[in-house]
Design a protein around this nucleic acid. Structure first.
Lengths: 122, 122
DNA sequence: CGGAATCCCAAGCGATACTG
DNA sequence: CAGTATCGCTTGGGATTCCG
């Protein structure tokens, strides 16, 4: 199956599709956020609880980027106290589907390995 | 001061499998490296060419971590000039399978979106 | 409650030189 | 070729405060 490798790049001058995807959900938190939102963890404070170790600044930043990339939407309720709900867009759902295999891989290997850095509740 | 730590929160009873996976391939480069190695880009200098923007230090570091996590192996040939070949382990192959949907997602969206920041291009 | 704005420090990372 | 070693700057992101 090995391809012939010349001097040329594999994906020149266009990007590797994988790099494009990583451009959107690459990072430590975004896949977790997308997955959590799909599970109904759709508010700022709820996400904060489910992501031990993340700072408010980081969470806000990641949410903004996900919104900018149209993976999720913000719905603001003018109430007291104020409320904001996040939900996945169609694009977000399609990306979630692509992320789920990573979740399944984790399930398969959870029995054999223990996490080193991050322990996150679901 | 009020550095009161809730152990129950930091070490929750159930670990998110997705977090475990991200612990292993989370990051900007690792999915790309795993995919490239599977395509036969199995030497240091070849990988360096295929990853414009990565520094030698970073590439070496990521390779060490992937090796430590037993996703790939190093084979050293005592030749002149020296040669080192990387290849995926069984675990690495299983993870590659879980990463491929992200690749496919990128393919689907390449037509609609253009990359923004971390453009891997030449 | 859900953020935005500031301050600030150390880890992270790039660039370069060097080595087996 | 395939890396290490070293230096120095950048910036990620933690802590805190303030606002609608």
């Amino acid at each position: 199956m090995k391809k012939e490798l010349s001097n040329a790049l594999i994906y020149p001058p266009v990007l590797c599709p994988l790099a494009l995807t990583l451009d959107v959900i690459g990072g430590k938190w975004k896949p977790l956020i997308v997955h959590l939102v799909s599970q109904g963890v759709n508010r700022f404070s709820l996400l904060e609880k489910q992501l031990p170790g993340i700072s408010r600044k980081m969470l806000a930043n990641q949410l903004r980027e996900l919104e900018r990339d149209e993976l999720l939407t913000r719905e603001i309720f003018a109430e007291i106290p104020p409320r904001v709900e996040y939900s996945l867009t169609e694009t977000g759902l399609s990306l979630l589907a692509a992320v789920m295999p990573l979740y399944e891989w984790g399930v398969q290997h959870l029995a054999h390995k223990q996490p080193r850095h991050t322990a996150i509740q679901l």
